[in-house]
Design a protein around this nucleic acid. Sequence first.
DNA 1: GTCTATAGATCGATAGAC
DNA 2: GTCTATCGATCTATAGAC
Lengths: 187, 187
Amino acid sequence: MPKTKTSKEEVLNKIIPILRVRGVQNSSMNELAKACGIQKSHFYYYFNSKEALIKEVLSIVYSYFNYNIFKIIDHKSLTLPDKITKVKHLMEKLFKASDGGCIMANTALETIHLNPTYKKEIQSFFSDFIKGVQRLLESNYTSQESIVLAEQIVQDIEGGILLTQVYTDPKYLNNAIARMEKIILKQ
Amino acid sequence: MPKTKTSKEEVLNKIIPILRVRGVQNSSMNELAKACGIQKSHFYYYFNSKEALIKEVLSIVYSYFNYNIFKIIDHKSLTLPDKITKVKHLMEKLFKASDGGCIMANTALETIHLNPTYKKEIQSFFSDFIKGVQRLLESNYTSQESIVLAEQIVQDIEGGILLTQVYTDPKYLNNAIARMEKIILKQ
DNA sequence: GTCTATAGATCGATAGAC
DNA sequence: GTCTATCGATCTATAGAC
């Protein structure tokens, strides 16, 4: 048997899409390992446990989101409409229904009443999500208005991700994103 | 050993709260049976499989919601504010975060990409949810406006249920319900 | 109570790069 | 030779089902 050469990063990037679609509980170590072309025993060389594996996955997703959204928002030479366009693209990528929607929301609902391990990371994700939207609002709204509106927009989007998956219809997420744009631009 | 006399309805009512909090995949037949004080083998007298069990659970939740929301909305002698108050109470009961939030949303995200069995029931639930809100809107909005606003309100609420669970803070769901009230009353 | 399948997890053996 | 990334076998617990 030829040994398959892999790395921890490679493995993580391969399993994120699977966990997003199938969920944490519905993805076995065996299944995840097979998808990477390695034995599951080798997973325990990279990670101490399934829990440790999931923690690293969520950490990577969080870092990716955090880095990209604030890179857009804090960009010096982008106009507000340009920033909105880029943020929309980021969301469409991260929340695409056919790819399983929002892995943070999925994992939250799957684990939050059972296992507090992932709670911090999930909270950080949503805090940054809200904070990012809030920043986009602050040019047209007061700080107080911005925070409430940002929460509303994030709730609308997450609910839209849910309905888009329930009905296999992108309109719910698209409507939420369109509403976000209108609110930010105060149209 | 004293034999515990049970009924199918009794069993279903006892396991709904567990499934709501722990999710479908995280609830074993053994655990559910124990919570009812019966042997799990007795479960297979009531239900052919776990899948059949979950289907009945979702069917009961759907029927309960459907019956109650339309009883309120179609009531002849209730004012609009009274209807809103009653709908709010129904939602607070069905979506309470400490009881696991919305079992339909939880089950949707847990199963929709794996098992189409529950899809119809979940879709019906959300269709009636949106239709109920839409009916409340129709006295102050056009039919076209009502449907889009109803979808927005349901998304806001479902996102609020998510964030309320993520942060263990009722404000997100409460804010969504308050926004619903303002929109319906056009305040 | 028992069956079979599979879950997560561990271990010793070893192929291959240096 | 050593080291470490990988494998195959195996353990125990528990799942759904009868």
